[in-house]
Design a protein around this nucleic acid. Structure first.
Lengths: 175, 175
DNA sequence: GTCTATACTAAGATAGAC
DNA sequence: GTCTATCTTAGTATAGAC
């Protein structure tokens, strides 16, 4: 693992401020402070605020790829993996999850966010399609994932017991 | 109907810029220009940028209330009304819909947006709960609505034929 | 109720030392 | 690779005329 590079620490700080305090709180100064570097130091790694966003998008894409690979192998199957992954408190610490929530905070600010989220949706749907019969159920599952992420971004938690029932309901629908 | 007040025109401009160009494009100057008034004129109606956001939230709450009242009477039933309402191209012009998309653009910028969206979710769920047997299906329906709104915000359109099947699937699940 | 002019501030970015 | 100092601009908000 090794200790994180300064670059990664900056990206972490960016992400965490985004999640905790919202887009308005993300100033170069605040990010630098949280990462333990100066504004100049930060700008060495990311030449502009926009570069910071690009960095987050890139990270999100990588983490998602890794997550989908894991879903492929998951003993409980991709559907359960996908839906639980989205939101449980236990998973809130999951890197892919945090990066997604952070990115969603930037929704209105840059079109790159939208295209990235659409792309991620597409990849998960691809995986789900390979494991469900009915394409409509795939759509439902993907849509539910999106709903869960929106709620997580709103700070609303979805009841655990409902989350446990969810995959069963979808499988019933897939008959 | 009467012609819209200057105040309303300002709010319209704010909303439309939000939807079309995102949060960064929303400057007092841009909003004023689009509303056909000067910066000073705008600030007479809304004393600050924050007041503009408050205005949108208030409008959204009113429109939602009216929409829910309509859903109550809808011949196709609240479930169908809720799900179609969310996203069809035909409904894109619907005031409640546009206000919602605009508000979602502001997600990361102010906690008021989150609390408002949660409140709106709650009200729709209340209505749906009165017309479905299984509380879990109510949750699913509400979550799907959220997912549809997130996708609309992303600019991704959901296939019409899938949308038509959706309520039937949920009713099947509710047996 | 709306306009013009202007003050003020915050924040992004550059330059150059270390 | 990181820091301090500084420049620059954009954008919010105020004041006061009409």
């Amino acid at each position: 693992m090794g200790r994180p590079s300064a670059r990664d620490q900056v990206l972490d700080a960016y992400q965490e401020i985004l999640i905790a305090d919202g887009v308005a709180a993300v100033t170069l100064e605040a990010v630098a402070a949280r990462a333990g570097v100066s504004k100049g130091g930060l700008l060495y790694h990311f030449g502009s605020k926009d570069a910071l966003l690009d960095g987050l998008v890139e990270r999100l894409l990588h983490l998602t790829e890794a997550d989908i690979a894991r879903a492929h192998e998951a003993p409980e199957g991709p559907l359960r993996y996908y839906l639980s992954t989205s939101v449980t408190d236990a998973d809130m610490g999951k890197p892919a999850h945090r990066a997604t929530i952070a990115a969603l905070r930037l929704l209105g600010t840059d079109p790159k966010i939208s295209t990235t989220m659409i792309e991620i949706d597409r990849r998960w749907s691809e995986l789900l399609a390979a494991h469900l019969k009915d394409p409509a159920v795939v759509q439902v599952a993907a849509l539910l994932g999106d709903g869960l992420y929106l709620r997580a971004t709103l700070g609303e938690k979805t009841p655990e017991d409902f989350l446990r029932r969810l995959p069963d309901m979808l499988e019933q629908l897939d008959q």
